[in-house]
Amino acid sequence: MTEATIVNCPTCGKSVVWGENSPFRPFCSKRCQLIDLGEWAAEEKRIPSAGDLSESDDWSEEQQ
């Protein structure tokens, strides 16, 4: 018998068992999953990179 893996919900911090009984894992609920998705869609969350360019940088694929 293997020990269940427990993770914390990234949205609310509640403990979640990582397994078939937790269909929204790593989230505790559909609500927390949708809150997280909304934050990504609104660009409140992002993965940082050294080469981030904003739309105002006048970058195009033709420039070298």
Rank of each mutant, 00 (worst) to 15 (best):
W18L: 15
I47P: 00
E20M: 06
T5M: 05
D57K: 01
A41M: 08
S60A: 12
G13I: 04
Q64T: 07
G51Q: 02
P26L: 09
E62R: 13
R46F: 12
W40Y: 10
C9D: 15
A42M: 14
E20A: 12
S29I: 01
F27D: 12
W18K: 15
A41W: 01
P23N: 06
D52T: 13
T2F: 04
E44H: 13
L53R: 15
P10N: 02
S15L: 07
G19D: 14
S49Y: 08
N21S: 15
C9Q: 05
I35G: 00
F24R: 06
N8H: 09
G19C: 07
P48V: 11
C12P: 03
P26C: 11
Q33V: 01
R46A: 15
R31Y: 02
A42R: 15
P48G: 10
I6P: 02
Q63V: 11
T11F: 00
V7A: 10
C32H: 08
I35K: 07
G19Q: 08
P23M: 06
E61G: 09
V17L: 11
W18P: 00
W59F: 10
M1P: 04
E39N: 13
L53N: 03
E55Y: 10
E62P: 01
I35F: 01
K45G: 01
A4T: 04
K45W: 05
D57P: 02
E43A: 09
D57S: 13
C28K: 05
A41T: 05
E44S: 07
V7E: 08
R46W: 10
P23S: 12
S22Y: 02
S54W: 11
W18Y: 14
E62T: 10
L53F: 10
E39H: 11
Q33F: 15
P48M: 09
V7G: 04
S60C: 14
P10Y: 02
S29Q: 01
C12I: 06
L53G: 01
C9T: 07
M1F: 03
F27N: 12
K45T: 11
I47H: 02
S22V: 10
W40V: 05
E43V: 04
K30N: 14
R25W: 12
F27Y: 15
R31W: 00
W40E: 07
D36P: 05
A41L: 12
D58T: 08
S56G: 11
G19V: 06
W59Q: 11
P48C: 05
P48S: 11
S49D: 05
P10F: 01
E55Q: 07
